[in-house]
Design a binder for these strands. Structure first.
Lengths: 333, 333
DNA sequence: TTGTACGCGTTATCAT
DNA sequence: ATGATAACGCGTACAA
């Protein structure tokens, strides 16, 4: 019995000698209460240590002031940046976040959607690569306003935030060859990297095929240590290369492996990180990276969600374009 | 009107031609239902797309299956690791996390405690430097089982997880001088670093005073860029030093500044990070760091909380001792 | 200004 | 096995 002794509004009313309706009015500052009774009620509230039950309030008003957030295991820096952004504005707007984390399986993501629905949240923000459009529409069919990140989805109560990675990557590659880039490019694929990775890989392949350049794709694990070892081996026989890695830590593994083998970055080995964070700038040599400020994305998505909840979201779609930060891991051409 | 059209248990009952009590039994698999009616009810549930309201369930059962988590702005790597750990076991145990983030102010942390209480959570995990013991006891007086991280607190429904940083740091310092360490040590203080930092600084000072060694304390901003610039200036006139920094990014700022000025790490400048993450190992030169696996801390705290909720937590206190990972940013002595 | 009574969507205790 | 009905803690028309 968790809250056996929870003080209820009724007990406050009794102790203050008024009805529970009056107490409710005081709590919600609705006025229509005499100064005297208000003070009396407020005093007893303090004396009894009464705190309204958010549950009961939510049930009565049909508003939970809760936002459901579906994200993959919050262990990547860019995910935690996103979360920080969401949390920032949620706090100032008086919302509480309910966290639902998924781990690379559509099944689990689906069960999280179920949970979000039963959770009675006022809205949801979804950033999960595994979900299909129809999965998201399911949550929408329960009329839960939803912002979907990194997936184009249209719907009544759905807004989306999109990343224009492919275009930027495509131009980046073209420009590389145009300016005389002579190393063959290698795309470093990560197991279970999700759709953002796949889309980038596709763009990588298509761009190369379009301009008639040879390319390469390598698989690696989503672990710094293993990737480091793999590339340490790799660089025994391969002394040159231009690598496009998904994440900073992958890029760092390649860079460190190259350096430790005795190769020069960027002279021998060039590296680009696709989803750059602040660490791309801290690592040495600093790593050229495509970068989207995920904290801004988080803030934006929360603002959009609030508008969606209030029915005044005009543009249901917003695009973030990654910035290309050229640093020391690539040669300036 | 958010969920105007939410399907209720009553509507299911009506559509299935049974009473809502029967539907409730089916949902909760309580048996005492004919195979035929069960199938019938399950069919209508699916047909109507009914999802029970977690709110109403929580209100009726006095169990929300929600855990309140109070942490500082989830933007540090070690915080997001902690969160990932909590989230891991919460998920497998069927709990949802409600996130309450604070930002370096006791006042805000207090208001978050209020929110946790109104939130009707089944338990709470608190990791916040600003809170006093009495603040935490407040949440406990509402009989919310609570695990407090990084603060020694005793109470009926309170457990705590402690970090033994001071001891380890103290021994580390002693051993440094014993083995002939000749650089003067400098503790790099961060504004608003919280109590963990303060405690470490205190241990740093006391150890030096006890063994009669001179020391130094420097202030810096909690920003990689500013700290980098500050130390870039600093190293114009100071060509040697042994720095103990709070965080990896601070340590990296010092290391990069030293390197960029032309100093050698670790020959001229040695650096230790107090709260190391995986990045301490990725940065070059790799950074010697004290390290606590925050993901493990998160998991442990969640396990302890569940035991606390079920009234069978035997040891109400658990200690994590940081590992000292000696790497390339210090000289092996 | 204040109080009464009903509804929010469940669970659970009774009868039947 | 099934069905009324009273909680759970609160908001809110409506009446007084």
């Amino acid at each position: 019995m968790n809250t056996k002794d929870r003080v209820t509004i009724y007990q406050v009313a009794q102790a203050a000698g008024v009805s529970l309706a009056t107490v409710s009015r005081v709590i919600n500052k609705q006025g229509n209460v005499t100064e005297a009774t208000r003070l009396n009620v407020e005093e007893t509230i303090k004396r009894l240590g009464y705190k309204p039950s958010g549950l009961a309030q939510a049930l009565a008003t049909n508003k939970s002031t809760n936002i459901g957030v579906i994200i993959p295991n919050a262990n990547y820096v860019y995910i935690s940046n996103l979360l920080a952004g969401i949390s920032d504005v949620a706090k100032t707007k008086g919302f509480v976040l309910s966290l639902f984390t998924t781990s690379h399986s559509r099944e689990e993501a689906l069960s999280m959607i179920e949970k979000v629905i039963t959770s009675h949240v006022d809205g949801a923000i979804i950033f999960d690569d595994e979900l299909d459009a129809e999965d998201v529409m399911k949550i929408n069919s329960y009329s839960v306003p939803t912002i979907v990140i990194n997936k184009k989805i249209i719907g009544d109560k759905v807004g989306s935030i999109l990343f224009s990675y492919e275009d930027v990557l495509s131009k980046f590659i073209e420009s590389y060859y145009k300016k005389g880039g002579d190393k063959q490019m290698t795309f470093v694929h990560v197991h279970d990297g999700g759709r953002l990775l796949s889309r980038n890989e596709k763009a990588f392949r298509e761009t190369h095929e379009r301009i008639g350049q040879k390319y390469n794709v390598i698989n690696c694990d989503d672990s710094y240590t293993r990737t480091y070892h793999d590339f340490y081996e790799y660089f025994q026989n391969n002394k040159k290369g231009y690598f496009i890695a998904y994440r900073d830590s992958i890029a760092a593994a390649i860079e460190n492996a190259a350096t430790d083998v005795g190769l020069k970055v960027p002279e021998d080995v060039e590296i680009v990180s696709l989803v750059g964070t602040k660490y791309a700038n801290i690592l040495r040599p600093s790593i050229t990276a495509l970068h989207i400020n995920m904290q801004e994305v988080g803030q934006r998505s929360m603002y959009m969600l609030i508008d969606l909840i209030n029915n005044d979201l005009v543009d249901k779609s917003y695009r973030f374009e990654p910035l290309v930060n050229e640093r020391s891991s690539t040669i300036k051409r």
